[in-house]
Every structure is written in structure tokens, then in C-alpha cells.
Amino acid sequence: MTKGSELGTIVKSNIVDRVYERVGFTRQEAASAVDVVLDEIKAVLSKGESVRIVGFASFNLRDKKARNARNPRTGEPIIIKPRRVLTFKPSKHLLDSTNSKDHETIHSG
């Protein structure tokens, strides 16, 4: 096992390894391909367009209105500016996978 996964955390290099094992590129090519995929998703989202990956999830954008709030520490009223946030909606397939049997023996993280 490569670094990271021993701790129960998968990082980009673990994914690059998988890509490298599956296709005939060099590891460098695999790494840059993974980067381009992630960068393209980021670019699309930053343009305000949502991304839907069938069988995985969709990344949607939601515009939040400005609202009044309070600093919970000082009680001081503040205005929260309108903002755009990212929401994540897992697909049925992903939900089913995380509730599959082999998961049940593992403690939640």
C-alpha cells in the first residue's frame, strides 16, 4: 500500500497510481491527466455551471441571499453578503456503495 491509504485516507497520488495501473501511460502522464480532470471540473464550477457525473454524484451551485446575522460571541449584528456555494448530491449508486456489506465491519471515520 502506498502512503496515505494506511491511515485510512486516500490522496491524489493513490488515484494516480490506479490510473497508472489501468492505462499504458507513464506515471507522469497519469498524474497530469488526473490534474486536468480536476482542474476542468473546477473551471466549469467557477463559471457557474454544475457538473453531473452519472453513477457518482452531481456538484451543484446554489446562490444564497444576503441575510442579517449576529456574531455569536459578541452579539453584534452583521450582514452576510450574498454568496454562491457548492452542494454535493451523491447518486443512488454511490449511496448504495457506501451502504454495502463490506463497509459494515469498518468503524465510521
Binding site: S5, G8, T9, I10, V11, K12, N14, I15, R18, V19, R22, V23, V34, V37, L38, I53, G55, F56, H93, L94, S97, T98, S100, D102, H103, I106, H107, S108, G109
Partner: peptide, 19 residues
């Protein structure tokens, strides 16, 4: 492969962190 890796890791209860 990218999305399958993430799916499998989550199915095993592992976190995935992408800088």
C-alpha cells in the same frame, strides 16, 4: 478511474482528500 477510486474508498470507509 478517478470516480471509481473515490467510490471504492468511501465504500471501505476511507476518506479521500484532493488538494
Amino acid at each position: 478511474t478517478v470516480f471509481q477510486s473515490i467510490t471504492e474508498s468511501l465504500a471501505q470507509g476511507k476518506k479521500v482528500e484532493l488538494r
